[in-house]
Design a binder for these strands. Structure first.
Lengths: 152, 152
DNA sequence: CTCCACTCTATGCATACGCAACGAGCGGTC
DNA sequence: GACCGCTCGTTGCGTATGCATAGAGTGGAG
């Protein structure tokens, strides 16, 4: 089997696994409070120093187009879950900051979400396999993000 | 580190990698011809004996709700890429079959898509790592699909 | 200092999506 | 054979999304 088809098979396997797990996770996600994509946005903010990012940088972490991220930020700001402010170092930019309310909701939903993940993903692979999978995915993401920046 | 957080870390890593790769793939996918999700639908049909599935079974492979799959099938049928027919063994069911046109488009787009995958995913991991990643993902998907059926 | 090319985010519009509900079909019970 | 509970796919509706575009801001060249 050529290297090319090995890569295709690996990607297909990853994508299929992600669809399968995401379907199971979606089934028990509290969508009445927040959507999975909105949760992902809050997650990305929570990982940043001071829980803040410019919309441009936030967009790079999400699977939405830039106008959709802009709109989602608007909706979350309207609910008081994030705050928007102009970037003092670049007037073009908008800084999005996780509010206390947003952080509280993120944590509350996150605990429940983590339980689902532990059962579904944790039940499928051993700890050693999980660490192995994590390492491979980090390498894949790092190299891919690099290529995207390089291609620009 | 507990098993629970190992599972959460592994899932986060997988999800982030998937977002990163999908962003890069989307950037060069021929969306003027077909969307990535429509392509995924055709892909799932192409994998079946006789390239056909009931909508219910097709839905299980996709990240859309059942009505959305129904609508997408309608749109693809309108373009002649798939054909719909009533299931002779169960009048409630609709069989979706990949047409010659649909198969031709799927293959053409698939070749281009496979090149992107080879460069992006193949450039990030070695052949041994790719096989390892594929094996772990197959195991994850198999266990997860099993749990979904079990929970029903 | 002015101008211009580009960056960055927001907005208008058309389409796709999810949710809720509906109607046709199936299979088991009486 | 009739009835009922459930399955399965379709449809109506409101919202989210992507595409194209506009306008404000930046930085570098002249």
């Amino acid at each position: 089997m050529s290297e090319a088809s090995t890569a295709v098979d690996a990607w297909e396997a990853l994508f299929r696994a992600q669809v399968s797990v995401l379907r199971a996770l979606s089934a028990e996600f509290p969508t009445d409070e927040i959507s999975l994509t909105e949760y992902d946005l809050l997650f990305n903010l929570s990982r940043q120093p001071e829980h803040r990012l410019r919309i441009r940088d936030l967009h790079a972490h999400l699977l939405l187009t830039q106008p959709s991220v802009s709109r989602m930020v608007d909706r979350l700001a309207a609910r008081g879950l994030v705050a928007k402010s102009t970037d003092p170092s670049d007037g073009r930019g908008t800084i999005v900051t996780l509010t206390d309310d947003g952080h509280e909701l993120y944590r509350r939903v996150g605990v429940q979400h983590a339980r689902s993940i532990s059962r579904i993903v944790g039940g499928a692979l051993s700890p050693a396999e999980l660490r192995q999978l994590a390492a491979l995915c980090v390498k894949l993401r790092t190299a891919t993000a690099h290529e995207a920046t390089h291609a620009s």
